[in-house]
Write a protein that binds this DNA or RNA. Sequence first.
DNA 1: CTGTTAGCGCTTTCAC
DNA 2: GTGAAAGCGCTAACAG
Lengths: 340, 340
Amino acid sequence: MSGSNKPRSRWRSGATIKDVAAAAGVSPMTVSRVLNKEPVVTLATREKVLKAVGDLDYRPNFSARSLAKARSFFIGLLYDNPSAGYISEFLNGAVARGKADRYHLVLEYCPSGLQSVFSDANVDGVILLPPVCDDINTIVAVERLGVPYVRISPDLAHEKGLQITIDDRAAAARMVRYLIDLGHREIGFIKGHPNQGASREREAGFRAVMAEGGLPVREDFVVQGYFSYKSGLVAAEVILSKTDRPTAIFASNDDMAAATVAQAHRLGLEVPTDLTVVGFDDTEIASAVWPTLTTMRQPIREMAEAAVDQLIAMINNVDAAESPRNSSFVCELVQRDSSG
Amino acid sequence: MSGSNKPRSRWRSGATIKDVAAAAGVSPMTVSRVLNKEPVVTLATREKVLKAVGDLDYRPNFSARSLAKARSFFIGLLYDNPSAGYISEFLNGAVARGKADRYHLVLEYCPSGLQSVFSDANVDGVILLPPVCDDINTIVAVERLGVPYVRISPDLAHEKGLQITIDDRAAAARMVRYLIDLGHREIGFIKGHPNQGASREREAGFRAVMAEGGLPVREDFVVQGYFSYKSGLVAAEVILSKTDRPTAIFASNDDMAAATVAQAHRLGLEVPTDLTVVGFDDTEIASAVWPTLTTMRQPIREMAEAAVDQLIAMINNVDAAESPRNSSFVCELVQRDSSG
DNA sequence: CTGTTAGCGCTTTCAC
DNA sequence: GTGAAAGCGCTAACAG
């Protein structure tokens, strides 16, 4: 940190609630009531106050309000290297939803393993994105914080804390059924990162439907990936370099599906003519590659909105916090050009 | 908002600085000094205090500290639909850098046009991402806030406020020289969104080098894009559907370059055999498509770190704020598979 | 419907 | 090197 800490000799203006009260000829308390939209205030009084607020360009002091209300009006967002598309989509939803209730988002980068959570922030609630939502150290740290929290697409069910999920298994099952309906019999599968519950669920959905359809799963067509583009490249090569190969590959996310398409091209295979490729999530990349990817759209934005909503409800209403109402979102099959 | 607002009957723990002081047998003031790492305190005292802090699991109240210090320790980040890759990269840098000085980032979504900036947050400084950094209403609103701000890759030079830029013109020039060195003579260009200065600069760099090399610019090979994948698809079609076409296309960002590759494929052209395509930014998509894109890497993370650094310096030191030291970052040509 | 009093938890200032 | 008093700007709780 640099030098002397003398603050604000020119920053920050300074009209306080007292100034507004004086200008409007009322008490600070009345100003406070107007600002907090309490319905009791007379219309006339309200207007006087609002005028004074405008004249003085008054902006309430967040810290003072927080201190008095014993609330920070901040929600912490714990993340750790999600794909760019995922986090940016999530942020859009969460920021918009928080704004309505005057909540702001504070970002905390949480490389799992490091338990350096919340060095000193005081937030009213916390949202944990995968895979942080499954890091036990982080969860413990958040619980010690004593604030409500929401876990997004978590793996293990954990006593407290609300969970916002999608039914990964059902969604994966739907995708495999789609492939079978298309006439595919030999279907390859690229698994997701083993540190995420979604990976197991998606695989389970895949296997369930294959079994259901009486189709044997060729274990050498099921390979480990890690949700990254690179890992998809490797996995696809393993599957496609065999003399016999599947007619379709279901990758556990879009990045790996995109990589599979690229690998297919490299090996001289046309998509979808020679090989059908499908992904999961419907992140940006799904519409960016060529051919565009058939995938399972995860309603990330809606999930973010729900997370913020529920969190605010829990912050306001302790009862709600006692009996969290987990919610599960449904995915939508988005058919594009990579399947046939 | 839901129901009654009775707070924290079970959330929030509660050890205050007084409790710590009592436990350590010192005054609150001494605890404060220890916590703020003021060097005056005796080692013995310091240790007593630290032990009490640990025992009580004390975490300082951010709001109280902010109120007393007249500082929020929050930095606002104003954004408006940047590409996912851009914002997520920027966030990584900014969050990490802020952490070192106990600053946190608060996100504000600022659809330009709407001047709904900072409904009520009080931040110590503001970072404006493009294109918000060029929205005059937003700039005015931020100036009225009375806090220092940094603009990232801004268009018009504006009196106050620090600017973190790259030399778009020079970078674009370098890319065009690279293409010429590769033997290309007929080079197409897809412009960026006209609301961003970077677009004009990149085009200027393109034209300068073409002129420098004595190569005429075919105006029908220069078409308008808007930085989106879709706009790139359209632009590329315009250029490539002619009977004669350029041997190389320089798109003003990666999304449009990726779209150009896709469009080329659709038209039966091989990249780079039949057509060289290059982009700008080196965002995620550049390594995600096939063939991977040759592009100009913009050091987004470093720029984010610099922005936070400078902002904190300005917050702490008014003198620094008087004479902002703008900084310009250099880009790096990343050669991949889409050029030849 | 509006005002008064007190205090949130911390830090500043000034003593000692 | 440490402590006591006062106050940051706001709102809860109570009066009236």
